[in-house]
Design a binder for these strands. Structure first.
Length: 489
RNA sequence: GCGGUCAUAGUAUAGCAUGGUAGUAUGCUGGCUUUCCAAGCCAGUCGCCCGGGUUCGAAUCCCGGUGACCGCACCA
């Protein structure tokens, strides 16, 4: 194996079934679509189990599972039909494509809103004689490039869209959830699922996909009560590595951040703290992570305050999570679009809830964890994926030291008894050291080996991935021993 | 989307200039050895990105497509 970093992770991913390009056998496989193999899927499932534990359950959230295809009206109301589409012009000579609004602003100093009709850009291009910024060639007509994938529904092909973010289901479901699930503000709703964006140029495998997993959490709150968060005392001391403008990434506690106004209220500080704790438990090196406050220009159009949770990797600082205080933008939009009431009663007061959103990119998170976990152990000539034990795709390897003398049968039996409760992998073939290496590489934290002593006293050896140390454990004590080592702290 | 580089087994690569259907390493499967950290031996297994053209013959030359990497642009 090569060293860690992007290439090392990529090689591991391809060689050990973590992830690989989709539509493999065909030459016309489009870019930006990747598939998780057995180890990748198991790893992802465990990561999501941790997400459910540390955020959904701990934060008292509801989880839903919405449709991936949603109606046109939803995206009219959300603003995606207008704002998720960039006005672009293409050079007829060299083929370069430019953002029409930016080109016009740069060349002619004229500000045209990006949501304007294409004709407005054509007029400006003609009036100011704007040519291609690259080759000086004549520009073609402006058009809108929408990053949403459209789909045709039914025989008439009625226009609908694959969701470009999962959160719209949460917004449109909010009134029903509030009524039927006995909602009270603040109320947090979570969802994990696929989103789809027609990226112009997908890059770097899991880092920029056209079809990707998001886990989004929408916290509906009363804007007058942003300082009220029930669980706050238990996370008050959690360090948040805030960074914004000129400030260095220095840890402040969640309490200090809320007190100083660095984040808008205790409610927001509470969820940011849960998020920081979650990623630490997921195996992200806290020293190489930060919450970066976005400047006015970087923020999404709806956001009043925005923090990106970023992690340092060999590909630079990667944005894993966007935390946005979205104010009343979403519910007001859907109230206006649908005519339905989105105000709720909060202690006798009618309020249109504001939204604080935590939008996680799952695929990127998985990549970052893999990169932070992959090491070369030169001393022992091995590659180790030092995943937290509770995230490992294979939890325990079951090996026979040799195949004969009944050791194989004994190992088979142990494997059968363990696999109901654990992800156990059985392996009889090859040198024992080679089998340990294979398990190390996919991050299996434990290996159980049946040897000649097993038949005499009923014990097996339990090997730890990280220390390579072994201890003898009675066969019947294995489940407890493993459970102890796999427990989430 | 633009420009540059590139595409050969599961992975990493040689071969391409000077066309004659592919080699190495590692992996994988089975066997021998019976062994606690990638030992050895034997046998086996898998490949020229896709489509078209030139040619008696294409991994190799030409055209088109697709993908990957890097830079630019993009990333509500």
């Amino acid at each position: 194996m090569t060293a860690a970093g992007y290439d090392g992770v990529m090689r591991l991913a391809l060689e050990r079934g973590f992830y690989f390009p989709s539509c493999g056998p065909y030459g016309d496989a489009p870019a930006g679509f990747w598939e998780y193999g057995p180890n990748g899927t198991a790893f992802k499932n465990r990561f999501l189990a941790l997400w459910r534990r540390e955020l959904v359950r701990r934060g008292g959230m509801m989880e839903i599972d919405g449709s991936q295809i949603m109606s046109r009206s939803v995206f009219e109301a959300s603003g995606h039909l207008a704002s998720f589409a960039d006005p672009v012009v293409k050079c007829g000579a060299c083929g370069s494509t430019f953002r029409a609004d930016r080109l016009v602003a740069e060349k002619a100093g004229v500000a045209i809103p990006e949501a304007a009709e294409p004709a407005a850009f054509d007029a400006a291009v003609a009036e100011h004689g704007i040519a291609c910024a690259k080759c000086g060639g004549a520009l073609g007509g402006a058009r809108r490039f929408n990053m949403m994938f459209g789909v045709g529904i039914g025989p008439e092909g009625e226009r609908a869209y694959l969701r470009p973010e999962t959160c719209q289901s949460i917004f449109v479901d909010f009134p029903r959830l509030y009524k039927t699930m006995r909602g009270k503000l603040p109320m947090a709703v979570a969802q994990v699922g696929k989103s789809f964006r027609n990226e112009i140029s997908p890059r770097q495998s899991l880092l920029r996909l056209r079809e990707f997993y998001q886990a989004e959490i929408e916290v509906f709150c009363n804007p007058a009560r942003l300082d009220e968060a029930e669980g706050f005392p238990e996370v008050e001391g959690v360090k948040l590595r805030l960074q914004g403008g000129e400030e260095r990434a220095g840890p402040v506690t969640a309490g200090e951040a809320a007190e100083s106004g660095a984040v808008p209220g205790r409610l927001v500080a509470y969820y940011m703290a849960l998020l920081a704790l979650f990623y630490e438990k997921a195996g992200i090196d806290a020293e190489r992570s930060r919450f970066r406050r976005l400047g006015e220009k970087e923020k999404a159009f709806y956001a009043e305050a925005a923090f990106d949770f970023e992690v340092e990797t060999s590909a630079g600082w990667l944005e894993l999570v966007a935390c946005n205080y979205r104010s009343g933008h979403d519910l007001a939009g859907h109230a206006a679009g649908s005519g339905e009431k989105f105000e709720v009663d909060d202690g006798g007061e009618k309020v249109l809830p504001h939204v604080f959103e935590i939008s996680m990119g799952i695929d990127r998170s998985l990549y970052a964890i893999l990169e932070h976990s992959l090491r070369e152990d030169a001393e022992n000539d091995r590659t180790v994926l030092a995943l937290r034990p509770y995230l490992a795709p294979v939890q325990v390897g079951v090996l026979s030291l040799v195949k004969k003398d009944g050791l194989k049968e004994r190992a088979d039996r142990i494997h059968r008894s363990l696999r109901g409760d654990f992800d156990a992998f059985l392996d009889h073939s090859g040198a024992i050291g080679r089998r340990y290496r294979r398990l190390d590489e996919i991050g299996a934290p434990y290996a159980v080996t049946v040897d000649h002593r097993t038949a005499q006293d009923g014990t097996v050896t339990l090997r730890s991935r990280d220390t390579m140390g072994q201890r003898r454990v009675a066969e019947e004590d294995l489940p407890d021993a493993l459970r102890g080592g796999l427990r989430i702290p």
